[in-house]
Design a protein around this nucleic acid. Structure first.
Lengths: 328, 328
DNA sequence: TTGTAGGCGTTATCAT
DNA sequence: ATGATAACGCCTACAA
């Protein structure tokens, strides 16, 4: 079996306490003793047991991250951004997909209660504010991308209102007056803000929002295809479509293509998120870039600070960027 | 602080052993005692501490999965396929990206040595066979998708030779005689097998493989763009391109589009993997479907069986499927 | 059916 | 500078 601290102690002719001190770089160990211990560690190929240390120190050096679906490139890029921080602070990530299922999400949160992780990052949680607040009293938690308006919980996101406003204003600046919006049927704050911004941007340019041009579906490719088809078959179809996500935009573009409508000449399209696919479409997609990696990095850093007992900002807002490309 | 088993025992007026028996559904507990204990658990909101249990039982109920890059949709879909098994057997996943960096991969494997996980699934590992075999003697490990020829280690994959052969034969059946291959410059077995199959399929149809039509790059979109450009600028360009991955195929298609070549009329394109993007391209991509979710599911199941001490098959080969769509 | 007690591997306190 | 020892929370012989 694997060597334990006992074995090292015996081999080095010292106590386990001394071995522990060497491992944890405690200063009060003589050089000669340290040398003996390190040799024994080397010889026995000793690696400290995480479980033992965990139990004793009451910390897991593990963070739980709950995402709706790991297959979504949006979340995968955010997770990627957490890696450098995890490596730097020697934390591990338990990533789990909730599939936006309330029961599943609650079960996963049990991992926190079992003390399997020191804290949790929640992406687009389906828990309500009350439940979250209760959790927040017991555990360290950071909400990422989505949160509730006026929440007192720690969260990181972009300014969805401003981002959407700029996107719609851009379409208007390109001469469009009838602009469709393929939105989402969820109740996330980001959706509400983007819809509000869409309307306000129109009004600010003397355009009366037409509710028939706002369709609510999912974030999927299929939803974009269907939405665009419906929009283009209305009596007075739009000349531009603003989409809640890049994937939806991709679906919309395919639908337009099949309707023999050219992008951007016949219909302009703007996405949201700037996942890899956006720049790879033909023509490349105009979209609002979210700083995905940085969102992950910041959330991870803030959570680790919280765990370490530091004071952290309630709200962190990162910069978005309108990426004007070929579809507008 | 959170309640411990001690607290429950005291509250229920029994010993910790009895509480433990109730938790672990040991049969020899009287109904009345069980009831008392369950009430105490309920009242105190007790949840067993994972660390304590882990240390005592010497099992973590955690599996380590090493992937080259979590942002790659290919791997994300495989990971997705592991979820049902993890849920069923109450295991957790620690997912980590190696970025195909040897040092990083070795560091991550330390998690196994620290007994942070009961076993490991390795996707496209960059470790050599000797190192893997050494690990295999100490820990439970399953290789997924990539493995070494003639290995004695447990692995799960598709039949890359047969899959590639079918793809190339399909292109030939469409009348193509000059078929380019955008391959990879890595040394994975899958690459070698696909190249071998490519050549054999050509020869079996009396076509002499032209080494100038085989280009080796990465699995990226950019690599596909560059490769297609090079291929189409040769003296005698191909009329079809077989790509090592769907992402490469997407890049190739964009390059062709910009060269004003139509797919499939001017140049046919065939991908590999069948990630979501494949069917979402315009026109949708002909490709070889790997059963991504099932690959994940099988690998997870086999690893858990191994951990449980069951005998498992050395080699598991899953079925691929040629998806003939719009680009050929 | 239930309780007692030892130990999983580590670290931290208290002596020396 | 080093050692002895208790404790982290749990499970499981063994005893009763």
């Amino acid at each position: 079996m694997a060597a334990r601290i006992q074995d090292v102690a015996k081999a080095a002719g010292v106590s386990t306490a001394t071995v522990s001190r060497v491992i944890n770089r405690h200063p009060s160990v003589s050089d000669s003793t340290r040398k003996k211990v390190l040799e024994a560690i080397e010889k026995l190929n000793y690696i400290p047991n995480h479980g033992g240390r965990m139990l004793r120190k009451q910390e897991t050096k593990t963070i739980l991250v709950l995402v709706p679906d790991i297959r979504n490139s949006f979340y995968a890029n955010i997770l990627y951004g957490m890696d450098p921080i995890m490596t730097e602070y020697q934390y591990n990530l338990i990533i789990a997909s909730t599939y936006s299922d309330l029961v599943r999400e609650r079960n996963l949160i049990n991992l926190l209660k079992q003390k399997l992780a020191d804290g949790m990052i929640l992406l687009a949680s389906v828990l309500d504010e009350a439940e979250l607040r209760e959790l927040d009293e017991m555990y360290h938690l950071v909400q990422l991308c989505e949160f509730n308006q006026g929440t007192t919980l720690t969260h990181v996101s972009i300014d969805n209102y401003q981002a959407a406003y700029e996107a719609v204003a851009h379409l208007i600046s390109r001469g469009h007056r009838r602009i469709g919006f393929l939105s989402s049927n969820n109740s996330f704050l980001s959706t509400k803000l983007r819809e509000a911004a869409y309307r306000q941007a129109l009004r600010d340019h003397s355009i009366t929002p037409d509710e028939n041009l706002i369709l609510r579906g999912t974030y999927s490719f299929e939803s974009g295809r269907i939405g665009a088809n419906i929009l283009m078959n209305t009596v007075n179809p739009p000349t531009a479509i603003f989409c809640i996500s890049d994937v939806v935009a991709a679906g919309a573009i395919q639908a337009l293509y099949r309707l023999n409508l050219r992008t951007p000449d016949d219909v302009a399209v703007c996405g949201f998120d700037d996942i890899d696919m956006a720049s790879q479409l033909t023509p490349p997609l105009t979209t609002v870039a979210q700083p995905l990696e940085m969102l992950g990095t910041m959330a991870a850093k803030i959570l680790i600070d919280k765990i370490a007992g530091k004071e952290v900002k309630r709200s962190t807002v990162l910069q978005h960027q309108l990426m004007i490309r070929g579809t507008t």
